[in-house]
């Protein structure tokens, strides 16, 4: 089922939470809502599901406006970050809950619940209580429960963030697997940009209740529209300087920029900066050599912190480098993103 948000606006406690949010999700698509906490991602899910009513704008499911359809009849389902299993029911009763609400007879719905539990690799655990299984298993029960009612749109509100690394990968694979198997239109809320890159067809980046960029993962990674989109993937240096005649220039570093002249910020990805020659000389004789402030070992490379007139630029090096040495570097064009400096108000 396709979904469309049109100019959604919402104030809570006199604070604007969503400001003109619009995007579309095609049938069977898997999209991620990406952004820092407080960006309005979870609120957007609640508006889609009908738990919160927007102040203006429309939600459409398959081209039909559903603003007046209450949450329980919207055919959307949410898996929350804090799991929310019903503590007074067994695991299979939890999973059967949406079917029970639809009036499916007890034996049928329990049989279906067991089938769903099999899909999330929890077969045979149906009679346990939610608090008798691990956190990762609880999250899978919640997923099975959300899917049991055959929702047209599945909304996942950071369902992996409470889990540790291994479980998170496992859960992510499970979600992708289920999406392939069932083809349910899915929206995942996450603040983990790499996660969004890995599993979605499209990413909607939000900040302060607004959609900043709506693009495919490749597009978002290669052409981030703003500084925070560029830096959300982590592993980058952020430098401030002025853009003069199309170049972002500090005293010692000059990079081509596409934005207009004036104060600017550059986001430079670590892996786009390589150390060329270590230890050119201890005296900064050459103009393009930088002093090494510190070095950290990162497994596949060394991360070298370079001093750029008091700011720090991180470069990578295959070989260890001495702190205090002077080095020359090469910077990849496509790892540099220059944006006009944001005015702080």
């Amino acid at each position: 089922m396709s979904l469309a948000l049109q100019h959604i606006r919402l104030d809570l406690n006199k604070k604007r939470i969503l400001d003109d949010v619009s995007f579309n999700v095609g049938t069977g698509e898997f999209i991620s809502l990406l952004g820092a906490s407080g960006a309005g991602k979870s609120t957007t899910l609640k508006v889609i599901a009908g738990i919160l009513a927007q102040d203006s704008g429309h939600i459409q499911l398959d081209g039909e406006v559903v603003d007046d359809i209450p949450a329980h009849r919207r055919k959307t389902s949410i898996v929350f970050q804090d799991v929310r299993l019903f503590p007074h029911m067994t695991i299979e009763e939890n999973v059967a809950f949406p079917l029970k609400m639809q009036g499916v007879p007890r034996s049928d719905r329990l049989a279906q619940a067991r089938k769903m539990l099999g899909l999330v690799h929890l077969g045979g655990m149906g009679l346990r209580r939610p608090d008798h299984v691990s956190g990762g298993q609880q999250q899978r029960v919640a997923l099975a429960r959300a899917l049991a009612g055959k929702p047209q749109v599945l909304l996942l509100d950071e369902p992996f963030s409470g889990l540790d690394e291994d479980l998170r990968d496992e859960m992510r694979e499970l979600v992708v697997e289920l999406h392939k198997a069932l083809g349910t239109t899915t929206i995942l809320v996450t603040h983990d940009a790499t996660e969004a890159l890995m599993i979605s067809n499209r990413i909607v980046y939000m900040r302060d209740g607004r959609v900043i960029q709506d693009a495919t993962p490749t597009e978002l990674y290669r052409n981030p529209k703003t500084q925070d989109v560029a830096s959300c993937f982590g592993d980058c240096s952020i430098l401030s300087a002025n853009v003069v005649y199309g170049y972002f220039c500090t005293e010692t570093l000059c990079l081509p920029a596409t934005c207009e002249d004036g104060p600017a910020t550059a986001v430079i990805r670590h892996d786009g900066v390589r150390v060329l020659n270590a230890d050119v000389s201890d005296v900064a004789s050459e103009p393009a050599s930088f002093e090494v402030k510190s070095v950290t070992y990162h497994g596949n490379c060394y991360l070298v912190q370079l001093d750029i007139e008091g700011q720090t630029l991180v470069a990578t090096s295959k070989t260890p480098i001495r702190t205090g040495a002077h080095v020359t570097i090469a910077i990849d064009q496509e790892s540099v993103f220059v944006y006009p400096a944001e005015r702080l108000c």
Binding site: G50, I51, H72, S77, F80, D82, G149
Partner: peptide, 16 residues
Amino acid sequence: ARLEEQARVLGADKLQ
């Protein structure tokens, strides 16, 4: 209100 919210999105009306 967490569990009530959850029940609503799973298709339960107010009485249910």
